[in-house]
Amino acid sequence: MTSSHGSGGPWSDLDRPPLNAAALRRALVTPDGLWTSLDVVPTTGSTNSDLAARAGDLPEGAVLVAEEQSSGRGRLDRSWVAPARSGIFVSVLLKPAVPVHRWGWLPLLTGVAAATGLAKAAGVDISLKWPNDLLISVGGEERKAGGILAERAGEDGIVVGLGINVTLGEAELPVPTAGSLLLADAVSTDRDPLLRAVLRSLEQWYGQWVRAGGDPVASGLQAAYTEGCATLGRRVRAELPGERMLEGEAVTLDGDGRLVVATEGGGTEAVSAGDIVHVRAES
């Protein structure tokens, strides 16, 4: 039996069934839980943009999932495009009652939560590339399988978007350095349990972090991120704002979640924004 990608009906691709929105709501939207609503839309430009536009009218914990995004965005306004129902494209609205200077930890927290949830549900080891990429191993090669984008929404809100490649085959990858859970030999590529696992893990980590007043040490977040971070201990090149370049060894994270890079002259510099490239060791 062959699947037809071009017919456009919801069941046209038997390998990529739609998400079960009603079952997801039953499982995740509970009276005492973080998640207050969960909507699944067939297609949209960007779940982050849609949720941010409604942030003033929604309580914390709104979840928006799209089966397909036509204008999904990554950091630095890069586009994120994938076939319909081939991945998890989800945004959540958070209104953390913690000091704003701690909010920089939210993309890192989401990375820890996603890696933790997917390790259990998909049986795949996921490492974290600072500040917002999910890395997997495909044939012994490090590939990007997901990304995180956090954006302020209104006075007290922040929308965190997460995109994860689930069933993309090699020919469907946007770039050769991308990967998917399927290509990493996941034990499951059923998106319903994968999404449930990620959102439950995010609820747990976010709850710990908020109860600790956003303290990354007391909440265990800094230790968990450090343990799972593939960037630390590596030689990196940081492409910083203003076309400035910094190269050195990524040695630690500081209390604000910034990447501390040891430079050639013996000093260190904390990087809060910019593109990080893992520099391959010369053989």
Rank of each mutant, 00 (worst) to 15 (best):
A27G: 00
A27E: 10
D32E: 13
G33I: 09
G33R: 15
L34H: 07
T36G: 12
T36K: 15
S37I: 06
L38H: 03
D39L: 13
V40S: 13
V41A: 02
V41H: 02
P42D: 05
T43N: 01
D50T: 10
L51C: 04
L51H: 01
A53L: 08
A55E: 06
A55L: 10
G56Q: 14
D57F: 13
D57T: 15
L58V: 08
L58N: 04
P59S: 14
G61R: 02
V63T: 07
V65G: 06
E67W: 04
E67L: 12
E67I: 05
E68M: 15
S70A: 13
G72R: 02
G72D: 06
G72P: 01
R75H: 09
S79A: 15
V81M: 14
S86N: 05
F89T: 06
S91M: 12
V92D: 00
L94A: 03
P96K: 03
V98K: 00
R102Y: 04
R102H: 09
W105N: 11
W105T: 07
L106D: 02
L106E: 08
L108P: 09
L109D: 04
L109R: 04
G111L: 00
A114K: 04
A115I: 12
A115G: 13
T116R: 12
T116Q: 12
G117R: 12
G117P: 05
G117F: 05
L118M: 15
A119Y: 10
A121E: 02
V124D: 01
D125F: 09
I126H: 02
K129C: 14
W130V: 03
W130I: 07
P131Y: 13
D133P: 08
I136D: 05
I136Y: 06
G139R: 01
G139E: 03
G139C: 03
E141G: 06
E142M: 10
E142W: 09
E142S: 14
E142K: 13
K144P: 14
A145K: 11
G146V: 07
G146L: 02
E151H: 10
R152Q: 10
R152G: 12
V160E: 02
G161T: 07
G163P: 10
N165R: 01
T167S: 11
T167Y: 01
L168D: 02
L168E: 01
G169S: 14
